[in-house]
Amino acid sequence: MPDSDIDTSVLIGLLDRARDGDSAARDELFERCRNYVSLLARVHIESWLQAKVDPSDLVQQTLLEAYRGLDGFQGQTQGEWLAWLKQILKHNATDYIRRYKGTAKRRIQREVPMEVPRHGSSLFRIDPSDPGETPSQLVIQHENEIQLAEAVNRLAEDQQQVILLRNAQRMSFNEVAERMERSRPAVQMLWLRALKKLKDLLEDVEGA
C-alpha cells in the first residue's frame, strides 16, 4: 500500500514540523484529523446517549487539548498519533456524557467532579502500558484508520448512520430499523450499499 505510506509520511511530516513550531503545519495536521475525530466522537456519544447528537463541541474540545498538549506527545508513528487522539477523545467523551446525562436527567447529585484535563499531565502522554490494548496491536490497527474514517465521511449521511449503528454500536437490524425509522429490509439494503461503497472507496484510495 504505497499510498498509505505517503499518507503516513505526510502526517508524520506535519507532526515533525508542528513540533518544530511551524504553526501552519500544526493547523493542517489537526485539520486532517478532524474528520477522524468527529467520526469517533459520534460513535462515543451516540452509543451512550442513544440519540443523534451533534458532536462538534466534543470534537472541538478534543482537538484543542491535543493542540495544547502536542509537546507532551512523544510518539513517532501515525498509529501512535491516532491512538493518542483517541485517548484524549475517550476522556473527554466520558466527561461530556456525564455532563449531558446530568443535565438531561436533572440529577444534580450524580454530578461528579469533572476531571479537568491539565496541560501536559500524564493523562495525555501516550501510555504504552494502557491496559486496554497492547501497544503493538494498537499501532498496527490504527495505522490506516484515518483513510477509513475519511471514506466513511464520504458516504451519504444515512449510509454513515447505518454503518455507525450496525458496525460501531453493534445493534441488530431490528434496532437499527427502529432507530432510523425505516423498515428492516430498507436498512439492510442501505447497509449493503454503504458497505459496497465503502469497499470501493478504500480500494480507490489504496489501489491508486
Binding site: 469517533l40 460513535v43 452509543s47 490497527q141 490504527h142 477509513l148 458496525n167 460501531a168 454500536q169 478504500l202
Partner: peptide
C-alpha cells in the same frame, strides 16, 4: 473492510 471498521470502533 469489516475488520477495519471493527478495529476503528472497539465498542
Amino acid at each position: 473492510c469489516l475488520i477495519r471498521l471493527d478495529a476503528l470502533f472497539p465498542f
